[in-house]
């Protein structure tokens, strides 16, 4: 609903795109044999999503200190401490993010690469917190509403995805035949 308020009806095709793109990406390597390309594209998508997510986390962490609206809430008006609650939520959800990166990327790549990904997310957080003011106008834009709808569609795909019973499972022999990164995207 919040994305709809920002971007209007454009959220519907974005939602459908987010829902269908992972399913299409899963089917591609079995139809065309282009597993490497799909894995590379998935890597770019994952990196973009992780980076954006980290930047938005950084913005959320900077809100209680920088944003006058959240500041007013902190000092006794309206919902008490909503800015800090958001910061606490961001910090708590970082724990599973760290586990996810380590358990999903570490088995498929080198230790150095997994550490680089962690560092990349950490850097994104610092960037988001440091550049909160210029970035904040972006987060309330139409494009961000469309992006959120796309991400929501991808999350619905994750929720509905069953490696053993899903529509994509008939196209390959076992869940183990999935490229690791496609599985990583699904889990995220």
């Amino acid at each position: 609903p919040h994305a709809f308020l920002m971007a209007g009806w454009w959220v519907l095709p974005a939602l459908l795109g987010g829902l269908l793109l992972p399913a299409v990406a899963e089917g591609l390597p079995h139809r065309r044999g282009g597993e490497r390309q799909v894995e590379r594209l998935t890597l770019v998508l994952v990196a973009t999503a992780l980076g954006l997510h980290a930047v938005m986390d950084g913005i959320a962490l900077a809100l209680p200190a920088n944003h006058s609206h959240a500041d007013a809430a902190l000092h006794g008006h309206g919902s008490h401490g909503s800015g800090l609650s958001l910061a606490l939520a961001v910090i708590l959800h970082r724990i599973p993010v760290g586990f996810a990166i380590w358990w999903l990327i570490r088995p498929h790549f080198s230790r150095a690469f997994a550490i680089t990904v962690i560092g990349y997310v950490a850097l994104g957080t610092v960037m988001g917190a440091a550049l909160t003011e210029p970035l904040l106008s972006l987060t309330s834009s139409e494009g961000m509403g469309i992006f959120q709808a796309f991400a929501a569609g991808a999350l619905v795909h994750v929720l509905l995805h069953r490696p053993d019973f899903g529509p994509a499972s008939g196209q390959h022999d076992s869940p183990a035949s999935q490229p690791g990164l496609t599985a990583a995207v699904d889990t995220r």
Partner: peptide
């Protein structure tokens, strides 16, 4: 903000550690 960012990065490292 710096403290919150620091704690969030520390939380990120719990899994790997």
């Amino acid at each position: 903000t710096a403290a919150l960012v620091f704690i969030s990065i520390a939380a990120l490292l719990i899994g790997p550690l």
